[in-house]
């Protein structure tokens, strides 16, 4: 995975939040839920940024705040250096909602034409782009059928095409792989990487760790609305205080474990696990969740990483 270029100018910052907080309230202003708590985030041009967290951790809320679908309780969110409430920023944004909320009585062509008009695009451009996008998402065979007849996976595809109709600079994807079969998931991930390679910035959120690990350059882990971890995937997964040791052709025996333990302790460390390898991000994720449950509140502090 290519290293994201470090931010040099203001122009390279696509998304910026400061102290972004969202408290859901009922009609009378009573507190229902703290969905997001004092989030500070910077997303740079050309990277794939992943928001990671279990259900209800505030991922979708963050995205809605960035898009102006919700208004922050306090703090600020800026996209392309414009306030989130400013609709002009939407010119350069493509958004795929958690489920593709499209009009079911339209067919694929009409859908793309409709959203193209919302960007005030001339007719020729709309036709050209929608033809290209329908091909890209592989719906040529079904472009005249109304979305009512589409399967979940097909809807996700047309939803993605809809998000790309304006050739956006920032693509925001909420759970892009949900509802897709394994092949569809791979296709989606490849497409996301391709978008990044075209120079677009991608902000995606997911609770599926493999997705995030495969495509994201940087991630933020949210739990209960608090930012828990933030950094480059590679660096987060490797832990400076931990040493990984890989070996082949070894039997897992108690003797081996005792010998290794002795060597490690001799050098001032301690043996944590001993066994076959697992998905490392999954480990991290589990650990974060468990620690957060034990000690609620913010865990991530900017000094934790050096990005």
């Amino acid at each position: 995975m290519a290293e994201p270029t470090p931010a040099k100018t203001k122009n390279d910052i696509v998304v910026e939040t400061r102290n972004l907080t969202k408290i859901y309230r009922d009609f009378w202003g009573r507190k229902k839920a703290v969905a997001l708590n004092a989030l500070d985030l910077t997303i740079k041009r050309g990277e794939i940024f992943g928001l990671l967290g279990p259900n209800g951790s505030g991922k979708t809320t963050t995205i809605k705040l960035l898009l102006g679908l919700l208004f922050p309780t306090s703090g600020e969110a800026k996209v392309f250096d414009r306030p989130a409430a400013d609709v002009r920023k939407n010119e350069k944004i493509g958004y795929l909602p958690e489920e593709s909320y499209l009009y079911r009585f339209l067919n694929a062509e009409e859908t793309l034409d409709f959203y193209g008009r919302l960007f005030d695009m001339p007719g020729e451009v709309r036709r050209e782009r929608s033809e290209k996008l329908i091909k890209l998402v592989g719906l040529e065979h079904a472009k005249k059928r109304t979305l009512r007849e589409y399967s979940k996976g097909m809807r996700q595809r047309i939803g993605l095409a809809q998000a790309l109709i304006n050739d956006p600079e920032l693509v925001i994807l909420d759970e892009p792989t949900s509802g897709l079969d394994p092949l569809g998931t791979i296709w989606m991930k490849e497409l996301i990487v391709k978008l990044r390679d075209e120079g677009k910035t991608v902000l995606m959120c997911s609770h599926r760790l493999d997705d995030v690990q495969d495509v994201c350059d940087r991630i933020a882990i949210l739990f209960n609305g608090d930012l828990q971890e933030l950094g480059e995937v590679n660096r987060l997964v490797e832990d400076a205080r931990r040493v990984e040791l890989k070996a082949t052709n070894l039997q897992l025996t108690e003797a081996l474990k005792a010998d290794l333990k002795a060597v490690i302790e001799k050098h001032g460390g301690s043996l944590e696990t001993f066994g076959h390898p697992t998905t490392t991000l999954e480990d991290l994720f589990k650990r974060v969740v468990e620690e957060s449950k034990a000690r609620p509140g913010r865990r991530y502090l900017p000094s934790n990483t050096n990005n």
């Binding site: 102006g68 944004i93 958004y95 909320y101 005030d120």
Partner: peptide, 12 residues
């Protein structure tokens, strides 16, 4: 039906 989300996130 949340269809409005895809509308207001356009420059509308």
């Amino acid at each position: 039906s949340l269809t409005i989300h895809t509308i207001v996130t356009k420059p509308v």
